[in-house]
């Protein structure tokens, strides 16, 4: 506790000009068609996003995208392709080798292609350890910008939550962009 007191007291000792908290009211960018913007930005950050067509079956769609994926993990009840429920494992390490994870996103952000996922699986490792990630998202849940995004989550009580925008990437070797650093090598967002 003494270090805490020392630090706090030292901060107080240095009386500086007090600055008021500015009012955060930003005339932020809004889009005529947020869904179209979201789809475009998602593609530009190395990921992919599609709108499921009327009457199109999501299982057929995913199967066609990943015909060879054997180890598929999901806890979503609507997914009928052969898969296992990752929530049955107590050890996140056992998820290494998952070829495809199918998870649900809460909402998307048009300005940067982010999808908000408050932890909705038992092992959050699933979002990062899977080779490929499919995020299923309600097309009516696209906000314009991060201000609207944080307004949405202001009242929610998550232990962990993450905005994901595209696949894992790095440019640490000569600034050459490489997809698939540590997390998912591909991210597909399916709007329905």
């Amino acid at each position: 506790m003494s270090s805490k007191n020392d630090i706090i007291n030292n901060i107080r000792r240095h009386v500086s000009t007090e600055y008021d908290m500015p009012e955060i009211r930003v005339e932020a960018v809004k889009f005529d068609n947020p869904v179209a913007e979201f789809l475009e930005i998602s593609r530009s950050v190395g990921g992919d996003a599609v709108m499921l067509k009327e009457g199109e079956d999501i299982n057929t769609f995913i199967r066609a995208l990943y015909p060879k994926a054997v180890t598929v993990a999901t806890n979503l009840s609507g997914i009928t392709i052969p898969s296992f429920n990752p929530d049955e494992t107590d050890d996140p390490h056992s998820l290494d080798g998952v070829e495809l994870a199918i998870v649900k996103g809460e909402f998307g952000v048009a300005e940067n292609g982010c999808v908000w996922i408050p932890q909705n699986v038992k092992q959050k490792a699933l979002y990062f350890i899977a080779e490929n990630l499919v995020i299923v998202l309600d097309k009516n849940r696209i906000v314009n910008n991060m201000h609207e995004a944080y307004e949405r989550i202001a009242a929610s009580d998550y232990g962990f939550g993450v905005y994901i925008s595209g696949p894992s990437k790095t440019a640490d070797i000569e600034q050459a962009l490489v997809i698939g650093a540590h997390g998912a090598k591909s991210v597909m967002i399916i709007l329905y």
Binding site: E111, F160, Y163
Partner: peptide
């Protein structure tokens, strides 16, 4: 969180010219 929204809009755009980092993780 309201202030955070201002900074997450600025950080990646200023740092690497990306609209956002791939992962913005909130550990609560």
């Amino acid at each position: 969180l309201k202030s955070l929204g201002v900074f997450t809009r600025l950080l990646a755009r200023s740092a690497t010219g990306q609209p956002s980092t791939t992962y913005t993780s909130h550990y609560r």
